[in-house]
Design a binder for these strands. Structure first.
Lengths: 124, 124
DNA sequence: TTATTATTTAAGCAATTGCTTAAATACGAT
DNA sequence: ATCGTATTTAAGCAATTGCTTAAATAATAA
């Protein structure tokens, strides 16, 4: 479908075409990044990811306790993260431990750093 | 409401309490970051943000052309970004130009860099 | 085997998202 | 004033999200 109903007279055709190329060339990267950001953009999931980053590994039960949420609700967040391979799972007896996948640990590190640098409010 | 129905026997109470403190101390930062990531996590909005970053400023009409989407749809994405002050707006005659707010430009720079580093598929 | 513990999965539902279409607003030119 | 251009805003709706509750699965212990 065409949408170019709006063409302002001073539109810079060169700029518009350059932008179309930028987007087209990076199509896969936009998909990759937006899927990761979409998942990290939920406050509960961002907390889960940060906690896994700090503690190396946690189980659904720990997270349920920490976040004061139902186990099932947390489990479903973990499932979404696991489905996109943002986190890994390992079993130790009955307990399933989750950890952040190395690749995504690096991708999200700038945000984890911001959370690390957070000055403690407890000092006020 | 209490949710701590699950208490595995080997649960590390010290770890759980440490995590609760981590989350509580960073409550505002989690909110701030997750709101930004939530907005950047939509593929259309990530493209808009990257294009504004590269081109300094664009109007809704340019973006509509580049992304092959209706002007109204793009305008509503811009509104969400403007409401959270992720982008700024300046008028030049009839045309409204949008640009990325400096603070969020820095916050999202790691992702913009990944998009910049994207090897051109045109070379294959 | 049966029970217990730890967890996932399925079903259901209210709230939110992202689009479409149509109406409203704002500035500029005649 | 009136018209054209550029854009936002409102209304409506299908699709998705994130929770709850209840049922299913998996490993261990008795």
């Amino acid at each position: 479908m065409d949408h170019h109903s709006c063409q302002r007279q001073q539109a810079d055709i060169t700029q518009i075409n350059r932008c179309k190329v930028r987007v087209a060339e990076r199509s896969d990267t936009f998909t990759y990044l937006s899927k990761a950001l979409e998942l990290a953009g939920n406050p509960t999931r961002l907390k889960i990811l940060y906690l896994l980053y700090k503690e190396k590994q946690l189980c659904v039960c720990d997270l349920s306790d920490i976040l004061d949420m139902g186990i099932s609700a947390v489990s479903q967040h973990l499932r979404k993260l696991k489905d996109r391979e943002i986190i890994n799972m390992t079993r130790q007896a009955q307990t399933l431990f989750y950890s952040v996948n190395r690749e995504y640990n690096n991708l999200l590190k700038p945000f984890f750093r911001i959370l690390d640098d957070q000055p403690s409010l407890a000092l006020i």
